[in-house]
Nucleic acid binder design. Sequence first.
DNA 1: ACCTGAACACCGTTCAAGT
DNA 2: ACCTGAACACCGTTCAAGT
Lengths: 239, 239
Amino acid sequence: MTQQAERTRRIPLSRDRVLTAAVALADEAGIEALSMRRLAQRLGVVPMALYKHVANKEELLDGMVDVLVSEIDPPVRGAAWNDAVRLRVLSARNALLRHSWARQVLESRNNKSPAVLGYMDSFIGMFLAGGFSIDLTHHVMHALGSRMWGFTQELFQDSGGGAAAGPADLGPEARAAVFREMAERYPNILKVATVSAHEDSVAGQGCDDQFEFEFALDLLLAGFERLHRQHWSSTPAKP
Amino acid sequence: MTQQAERTRRIPLSRDRVLTAAVALADEAGIEALSMRRLAQRLGVVPMALYKHVANKEELLDGMVDVLVSEIDPPVRGAAWNDAVRLRVLSARNALLRHSWARQVLESRNNKSPAVLGYMDSFIGMFLAGGFSIDLTHHVMHALGSRMWGFTQELFQDSGGGAAAGPADLGPEARAAVFREMAERYPNILKVATVSAHEDSVAGQGCDDQFEFEFALDLLLAGFERLHRQHWSSTPAKP
DNA sequence: ACCTGAACACCGTTCAAGT
DNA sequence: ACCTGAACACCGTTCAAGT
């Protein structure tokens, strides 16, 4: 027992061990619970010990993104560019869905680590291999934006806590009142919400995020293809 | 002097005054500098006084979003849906560009305030007024995602601090070394970066964010239009 | 040379004591 | 009834003192 505890403590801290523990902690307890102090405690070391392996918390978060990137499948070889891009994005999405903190952390990052640059580079490579001009590839990457990572800023997301849609723990008459209020103030939202929920309740099932994600992705991919076929260029043609 | 200071202190704190001050503080000092304590200090009150007008910091941030929404122009009347949507998004973008904290705060919000719901409702209304089916409108809103607010997660953004592109304060020989290193490790990124910078430097001008934003927006709008003309539906046709 | 306890300068928020 | 000082339970990070 004491021996085991000692052995655990013996394993020298490494950047890898720190990052893996940080990912695990964020996975389990949420990103808001990830603090240098808690992480140190989890690793059985004093907080300061972490600063041997990451310069500060920012670098810790960058490192967590690297872990994430390592979980994304490499591009499929020999596929058409559309398929290659599509599969890769969906693979990234899978990795992201495994880590609830990923979206928020990716959004907050500014500096790109080598791993992130590597991912972007190989991503760009898929378009170039498909015959896209560098110019079009450039704008196409911008258009994809964070969709490259497999997520979009979800508008209707009621993720997060449990008290999402508000009228969850209300009586039926109170719910009806909320419903009437909504119908009056936000008639358009209500139309959309009810048609997608197949129920006369605003707090209905919500949306199929995966469907929505692929809907927008495919819309963009179709647009890219069209521009590509037309030999679109951002600068006036000059042969 | 003392009289003036006293008068300033006399103005009773209100939710409006708190939110306006919070926006101003975040505008000037950055969102990371916005703390309840600093805000209180700026208003000449004790921190606790703020909690009379906002329940907690989350609600303060929600309120700041409301201020932002109030700065977005209402939809143009009598225009075609494409123009109406386009102008509205660009108006939102202008409001956003005036507040450097807006993107990050919007991204972090989960609960929708009445002001946000109102904006979404009127936004949805533009598509419905254009003859879009509720079904298509629903998915179209998802596809737009945060673009509704006038922003995208910028991939190549080197905004933020000053030490952006890395080799900014290096000598020319060191820069060349970084360049060769980049060329070897990230050949595709380099191609895109150099073609868009018109210079053999990775730390070149960067991208025209406004162009990129409109490029993707117009691509999506064109896709929406096509689906609309085809009477696209997410469920199998059943007349 | 390495490690770490204590300390610093902050947070958001609670709560009981003051007017 | 209102307001607020002090306190609580945290942060990330520094730094000098210990081994």
